[in-house]
């Protein structure tokens, strides 16, 4: 892939800042608008920018598909086990504020939401890896068979 030098350098240098924006959106999900889904989409878009700037094969070597799938499953499992923690502490599934699962902070603070913060982080990880997987599935598929002329 013969991108120009400006595109290549800028797309590599912009990636950590976009990831930090997404992490900020995820971590402040309980206090401000935003949350796991929005921040996860931003992080996934950062990966797509990274993969578009350089070769797709190099990007896939940096972030292999099997690791993406494992981390994506781990995101949902963080959510589910946070819900199971409510059961272990003697209340309902996904209970909050009754069982004091993480120590409560001030409302409006970063950890003021009880189980909101682990759930948001889990959803953010899951959605970021989902966007990367969709990019894998759609863009990076090479060597497609030519449309057959004798299908009719």
């Amino acid at each position: 892939m013969n991108n120009s030098l400006i595109v290549k350098v800028v797309s590599q240098k912009m990636v950590p800042f976009i990831i930090m924006l997404g992490a900020s959106i995820i971590l402040h999900g309980a206090a401000t608008p935003g949350g796991g889904f929005q921040g996860g989409v931003v992080i996934g878009a950062a990966y797509i920018l990274f993969a578009l700037g350089i070769d797709a094969k190099t990007a896939r070597l940096r972030l292999p598909v099997i690791k993406v799938k494992i981390v994506e499953s781990a995101g949902v499992l963080i959510y589910a086990f946070t819900g199971l923690g409510g059961i272990l502490l003697g209340s309902n599934f996904l209970a909050n504020k009754i069982v004091l699962f993480p120590p409560q902070g001030e409302p409006g603070g970063l950890f003021g939401g009880g189980t909101l913060i682990p759930i948001t982080i889990g959803v953010g990880i899951h959605v970021a890896c989902t966007v990367a997987s969709l990019y894998y599935a759609f863009v990076e598929y090479e060597g497609e068979p030519k449309p057959d002329k004798e299908t009719e």
Binding site: I25, P33, G34, G35, Q38, V42, A45, Y135
Partner: peptide, 19 residues
């Protein structure tokens, strides 16, 4: 509706266009 606006700007203008 700030949350919906953020989601739509990230998803509709970003991911859906890429797809």
């Amino acid at each position: 509706a700030n949350d919906v606006a953020m989601t739509e700007a990230a998803v509709g203008a970003g991911v859906t266009t890429i797809l």
